[in-house]
Write a protein that binds this DNA or RNA. Structure first.
Lengths: 96, 96
DNA sequence: CAAACAAGTTTGCAATGCAAACAGATAATT
DNA sequence: AATTATCTGTTTGCATTGCAAACTTGTTTG
């Protein structure tokens, strides 16, 4: 029932939501969509990856490296659970 | 359109939601309801107060001090705005 | 070949959440 | 009446972490 802080961080929450609707997205797409610095995006992705919420696919588009991300099943589940938990926090207001 | 980090912190979000449904609540009520340590609750309330999201009423119940909290209008508005913003983040998934 | 560009990663700092220590007052115990 | 425990909060110290800037590795352009 605890809020998952890995997901809860606003930038990462947006990342997770975008990935949940896109099957896969690469570094630059996320970068421009979210307007983060490259450094911060990198750190966030690293964190999500080390939680096994997404998997990374490194390849080359022509000669330039391309890093692409995809939600794992664990990531999807955790994201769904996150929203459930948040909804239940939202219900706390209905005690009046 | 940015997520308000003062509210976003899980403990404080719960506090705000409880207060939004109760007109007022005192320190011990929040303490037992949220199961935080007194120290942490104190810090969170201080933060919310310094953002003017709630106002503090210190009194005595008999001889023992009692600290009671109440959402301000600014607090209510910010909380409503917070949920709006979060809802719009939630919509990010619907790009597929 | 040197300078600019591209894609990420690593580093350093400032902010902050959390637990433990502290404070100040009242109530209970011996 | 002195010490011990309780109650209500506040302050302090540390470990984590988000963010910006610097760095790295490689590629393109003049």
């Amino acid at each position: 029932m605890e809020i998952d802080r890995i997901i809860h961080e606003p930038a990462r929450l947006r990342i997770m939501m975008i990935l949940s609707g896109l099957e896969q997205a690469d570094f630059n797409f996320l970068l421009t969509t979210l307007s983060l610095t490259r450094g911060n995006l990198s750190r966030h992705m690293e964190k999500l990856e080390s939680a096994a919420y997404l998997k990374v696919k490194k390849s080359f588009k022509g000669k330039i490296p391309n890093t692409s991300y995809q939600l794992t099943q664990k990531g999807s589940k955790s994201l769904a659970q996150y929203w459930e938990n948040l909804d239940s926090v939202r219900q706390l207001g209905n005690s009046r």
